[in-house]
Structure formats: structure tokens, C-alpha cells
Design a protein around this nucleic acid. Structure first.
Length: 476
RNA sequence: GCGCCAGUAGCUCAAUUGGAUAGAGCGUUGGCCUCCGGAGCCAAAGGUUGGGGGUUCGAUUCCCUCCUGGCGCACCA
């Protein structure tokens, strides 16, 4: 530290010495991918559940946003000292799967020459027909020999497996690799939801009304009580979901965070109520709502309607703009803000596109090091850095020093957009330096020192892009 | 009607959770390549932070109220 000063009410300014900033550079290079590591989490086990889309239809663009956000959050949390885990909840049981089976069965029967209507509340989408066609091409008409009930049951399992495989492929292509795809059916098979029901009942937190079993969630802050067992005797999605969340704690997670879509915010209080009723601390279960995505083409919002069948699928958007741009654009905004995704902009390979701005900076940095080597100036992390005295050099060093703080902020606030904002700032700070000063020149000692600055900058950009799982190109 | 979220430069968004002169990108205007990548840089213009109250040394941030937009208010998931 160089000096303290008191400047106005509430401000104490601390000036750090030039040597402090210079010493950061070899540290960054030595740390490599570990630069930015902090001990915020202290090894705490934390689970992030995200996407968890129903396997009854294709993944949409909201899932693509959630997938990018959840994936990056876990990476950042791990860097911040947590033991973080990616999980996907597969709703592979219950009413909707029966409807999936019935819908596919109707299309299948129709293809086999026995015209049948898709049930009123079934799935009408084009993809159901595709599924039916695929199944028929594999199995022929043989399922027509079963009675209608068995056929629907059989087809629901086949369709489920196929949808699930598609979802896994889409996530894989998107570079999201879950630690676990958790099956709802496994909870049901083990009767875990009935265990929950019994516990709540023993605590006197349930009652019967109009033939259904209710949970007194209002005792724990919910707006109204909720049904656990329907009049028909079926467990609700809610009951099984309580069991799922309880199971997370039983598997050793100390904190469980869910990322949900905006249409689920009314659901938060009841799950929180149930977990509190079961004795878990309120603050260990948190839900972040990820707002909607508006797809734009040439500045116009693309109208999407599930009914009309013109939804944009996750796969389509990733195929069209590429994984790098898609991930970047979906991370770019604060979770609370609706996100405008301009498809044409994401595809542009120009300065209008922030992805290319950052990737360009990395390619340029890499190239400078190559150029230095060609000129006989090797990268030496222990070079004498006292020759670095330009304001633009210190601006870059200060920016590099911010990185661990960015990691902390993202981990504490669960807001990954700070990473893309930071990358733009770092790239911009470096470009300003680069424009004004030459790295490789006749002054050997200055060249060596600046190469250290370049490599440290390259390392941080590389690390940040790594967290985003966006490629850091050596040339473009 | 009730609840959640948003409203910041012409456009798309930030602002280290209450701090200093509210910052970037795009767009506009004017400059910069004999030279490590011009996919870059510099400069200028552009703001009553949706309106109005309040809290205090200090508010984009917290509270109240109103306006606008999105979403939700199932024995669906």
C-alpha cells in the first residue's frame, strides 16, 4: 500500500503501490486456470437444479437460457470454493406421461390405418407424429395387437426414452454435462412421496377436505393450502416434488438452488413451506427465476405459439448461431430481465457481436506471444516488470485484479452476466493499451515485461471463456 | 382484484446491493493503419434513472403511491 487519504464523508481511499499491481502478473500466470479461485464456499455441497423440462416435447429457448445459466453458475461456484453439482429432474411419471403415451398411440394407430384422434388435452405437436413414424418404422404394426391400454402404456415408455435421448443429445451438443439426471419414477417406486405424506400427517399438518388431502402450507407463509392427494387418490406433482427436494438434502447437499421459469414463481412458496415443515432451514432452499426469452429476427419479435406449433427449439437456435454465440447471448443478461435474443446479431462475425469482440482479443493476445517468439523474445514470467509504467498498463493490471471479485459477486448473487460484462471490459482495456503501445519492440527488457502483461491478460480471458465454455481461439 | 418481475442515452443493456462526475456496446458525427491482427482505437454529441412523495451526509439502489409492459393466481406440471 502506498497511501491513505480521507476524501469527503465516508470515504477512505487506499492507494496501492505500482509494485503490488506488477506482482499480480506473474501470480496470474503461475496460477493458470486456478486464478480467480476463492474460498467463499468452504467446500459446502450445493446443488443446482436447472432446465428439468418435461420429456413430453422438445426443449425450447427458455431451456437454452436456463441451461447456459445453470451450467456457468456451477462452474463459477466450484471456482469459488463450493462443491457444486448439476442436476436435471426428469418428470417421467404421472399424468403427463400417460398423455404422451395416449397422444403417440393415437398417431401410431392412425399411421397403421386405424384413424384415431389425439386426446383433447394431449400433445398436438408435429413432433408427436414424427415420433410415431419413427416407432412404426422400427417396430412395424406389431403394437396394434395389444389392447389399447397396453399399447398406450408401451408407447409412453418408448416415446419417453426417445424424448429423453433427444434432450440429452441437445445438452451434450450445448456442452452441458449433468452430474445426474434424476428420475421422478425412482421416487415413486421407492414410495418416497408417501413417506413425506406420513411425516406431514404425523406433524398434524394435513387435513382432508372434499375428498382430497391438503397440506397446511399457509402455516409456513404460503398464500393458500395445497393438495397432496387428489380426490381420485393420485399424488400431486407437488407431493412428489417435496419428496424430491427432501431427497436432495438426504443425499448430503447443504444448499439446494433451483432455476425456474417465470411461470413457476407462484410455486416457490409452497415448496419452501413444505421444506420448512420438514425441518429444513428456509435459507438453504432458494429459487432463482429466469425470465422469458424473446427471439428476434431482423429486429422483429418472432411470435411463438405452442398451439400453432411454431416454437423455436433449443436445437434449432444452437445449430443456427453456434454454441459459442448461443451460450454467450443467454448469459449476457441479468436473470430478472427478459432477454432479447437477436438471431441475426448472434450470427454476425462483426464488431457488433460481443462474442467476436472477446474472442478476437484472445486471438490477438495469442498472436502477440507467437510474434514475440518469432522475434526472439520469449515469455519469461519472472522478467523485470519495473519498466511497466504507462497508465494503460496499470489499467490492464487493475482490471486483471478484479477477476476474483467478479467470481465472488457471481457466486454470491447467482448472476453470471457479470462474467460477460467483465470480459468486454477487460478486452476493451487491453485493446486501448495495445493501440497505444507496441509490445514487441527493439527495447528487449520492455518487450519481455509487456509479454508478461499479455500472457496474464490472455490467461484471464481464457479462464473466463472456459467458465462460459466458449472457445478461446488462437486465430480467427 | 392479488402476487412476482421489469421500466436507466435513439436502440440493447451495466452500475461491485446505499457511495464520489450513472457507464458499455450498437447507431450518429469527426479522426487514426509504413508498424505485433483495423473483427481494433481515440474524440464528440446523447440522461429530470417511468411520474410523484418519503427515509439520510448521500438514492438507479430502501419505503409509500401512481402509470406502463410481461408472467402467474389448478385436485396441470
Amino acid at each position: 500500500m502506498e497511501k491513505f487519504s480521507i476524501d469527503g464523508p465516508g470515504f477512505i481511499n487506499v492507494t496501492l503501490s505500482p509494485d503490488y499491481w506488477r506482482s499480480l502478473l506473474p501470480e496470474i500466470i503461475a496460477s493458470g486456470a486456478k486464478y480467480g479461485e476463492i474460498d467463499l464456499g468452504k467446500g459446502q455441497k450445493i446443488q443446482i437444479e436447472f432446465v428439468s423440462a418435461n420429456p413430453t416435447g422438445p426443449l425450447n429457448v427458455v431451456s437454452a437460457r436456463a441451461a447456459a445459466v445453470g451450467d456457468v453458475l456451477v462452474s463459477v461456484l466450484n471456482l469459488a470454493g463450493f462443491d457444486a453439482w448439476r442436476e436435471y429432474y426428469v418428470n417421467d411419471a404421472g399424468r403427463q406421461i400417460r398423455l404422451l403415451g395416449a397422444s403417440v398411440a393415437a398417431r401410431y394407430a392412425t399411421l397403421c390405418g386405424h384413424a384415431e384422434d389425439v386426446p383433447e388435452d394431449g400433445y398436438q405437436g408435429e413432433y408427436i407424429i414424427d415420433l410415431a413414424k419413427e416407432i412404426r418404422s422400427e417396430l412395424g404394426d406389431e403394437l396394434m395387437q395389444l389392447d389399447a391400454g397396453e399399447r398406450a402404456e408401451k408407447l409412453s415408455q418408448i416415446a419417453l426414452d426417445k424424448m429423453l435421448a433427444l434432450h440429452r443429445q441437445a445438452m451434450d451438443a450445448y456442452r452441458v454435462h449433468y452430474d445426474l439426471w434424476f428420475r421422478e419414477s425412482s421416487l415413486r417406486a421407492a414410495g418416497k412421496h408417501f413417506d413425506v405424506l406420513n411425516v406431514l400427517r404425523e406433524k398434524g399438518l394435513t387435513y382432508e377436505k372434499e375428498g382430497a388431502v391438503w397440506f397446511r402450507s399457509t402455516d409456513f407463509g404460503d398464500a393458500k393450502d395445497r393438495v397432496l392427494i387428489t380426490r381420485e387418490g393420485e399424488p400431486t406433482y407437488f407431493l412428489v416434488d417435496i419428496a424430491y427436494h427432501k431427497d436432495k438434502y438426504e443425499r448430503g447437499f447443504e444448499k439446494i438452488y433451483d432455476l425456474w421459469g417465470p411461470d413457476h414463481h407462484g410455486y416457490i412458496d409452497r415448496v419452501s413451506a413444505a421444506l420448512q415443515a420438514l425441518g429444513y432451514a428456509k435459507e438453504n432452499f432458494q429459487v432463482r427465476i429466469i425470465q422469458q426469452v424473446n427471439m428476434l429476427r431482423d429486429g422483429e419479435v418472432v411470435k411463438m405459439s405452442k398451439r400453432a406449433g411454431n416454437i423455436i427449439e433449443m436445437r434449432e437456435i444452437v445449430d443456427e448461431v453456434g454454441v459459442d454465440a448461443a451460450r454467450y447471448f443467454f448469459i449476457m443478461r441479468k436473470l430478472d430481465s427478459p432477454l432479447d435474443f437477436d438471431i441475426e446479431l448472434a450470427k454476425k462475425q462483426t464488431d457488433e457481436n460481443p462474442v467476436f469482440y472477446v474472442q478476437y482479443a484472445h486471438a490477438r493476445l495469442y498472436n502477440i506471444i507467437v510474434h514475440g517468439r518469432e522475434k526472439g523474445v520469449e515469455l519469461e514470467p519472472d522478467a523485470d516488470l519495473s519498466v511497466l509504467n504507462e497508465p494503460e498498463e496499470f489499467a490492464v493490471m487493475r482490471k486483471l485484479g478484479e477477476y476474483p471479485e467478479i467470481i465472488r459477486r457471481i457466486a454470491e448473487l447467482m448472476e453470471p452476466h457479470h462474467l460477460t460484462t467483465y470480459l468486454i471490459e477487460l478486452a476493451s482495456t487491453f485493446h486501448s493499451f495495445y493501440q497505444k503501445h507496441r509490445v514487441i519492440s527493439d527495447d528487449r527488457s520492455l518487450s519481455r515485461a509487456r509479454l508478461v502483461l499479455v500472457e496474464a491478460t490472455r490467461t484471464v480471458i481464457h479462464n473466463a471463456l472456459g467458465l462460459l465454455k466458449i472457445t478461446a481461439p488462437e486465430r480467427m
